[in-house]
Computed example of a mutant assay.
Amino acid sequence: MPPLLIVVGGLPATGKTTVAAELARRTGFSFLRVDTIEQAIIRTTSLTQPLGPVGYVVAREVAADLLRTGVSVIAECVNPLAVTRDAWRATGLGHGARVLETEIICSDPAEHRRRAEARDTGIPDLVAPAWQQIVDREYEPWTRDRLVVDTARLPVGEAVAVIEAAARPRR
């Protein structure tokens, strides 16, 4: 069975990290969080936000190493542009993995805003974007199929179960 790359994307404060971390706990897959990588780069270099593609490139290279050794990966990031989505897909397919692209949304704007204003990123020194920054963020519409999981409608456990079901190989 080839490894699996699950890319969990979506706007900040939709529940991506919560869902992806629980998915990693349940599956035992490696978990890569681009925010963690970017903040480590900022802490140890003279670089500052915005980093541009650096965090995504590092995460994809680490994912490629894991996939090459047969280890399945959950990559969590905003994944806002077609170019980032294409790059993740190419990383997985280029290393013999199955790829599941997942977009986490929060369809209730009031709940999304509440989460944005109340959340703790869990990463030292990482300042979460303000609500208006989330609303104004560049986020291209998807142009291909992906699994959409709405955390305004599903609790974490059910959201994870939906992704697990979609990740099962089809026979």
Rank of each mutant, 00 (worst) to 15 (best):
A13D: 04
G15L: 02
T17D: 03
T17V: 06
V19P: 02
A20T: 01
A21C: 01
R25Y: 05
R26C: 11
F29A: 11
F29R: 11
F29N: 08
R33C: 04
V34M: 05
V34T: 11
V34W: 01
D35E: 07
T36L: 11
T36G: 06
I37Q: 06
E38A: 11
E38L: 06
Q39P: 06
A40D: 09
A40N: 02
A40M: 13
I41S: 15
I41K: 05
I41Q: 12
R43M: 15
R43D: 15
T44W: 12
T44V: 04
T45K: 15
S46D: 15
P50T: 07
P50M: 13
L51D: 12
P53S: 08
V54M: 12
V54C: 05
G55P: 14
V57D: 14
V58T: 13
A59C: 14
R60F: 02
D65P: 00
D65S: 08
R68W: 10
E76G: 04
V78R: 02
V78F: 01
V78M: 03
N79P: 02
N79C: 15
P80L: 00
L81T: 06
A82G: 07
A82P: 00
A82Y: 00
A82C: 05
V83Y: 06
T84F: 05
T84E: 10
T84R: 13
R85Y: 05
D86T: 14
A87W: 01
A87C: 04
W88K: 07
R89F: 10
R89L: 07
A90F: 01
A90D: 06
A90L: 08
T91C: 04
T91M: 05
L93V: 14
G94M: 13
G94Y: 08
R98V: 00
R98P: 08
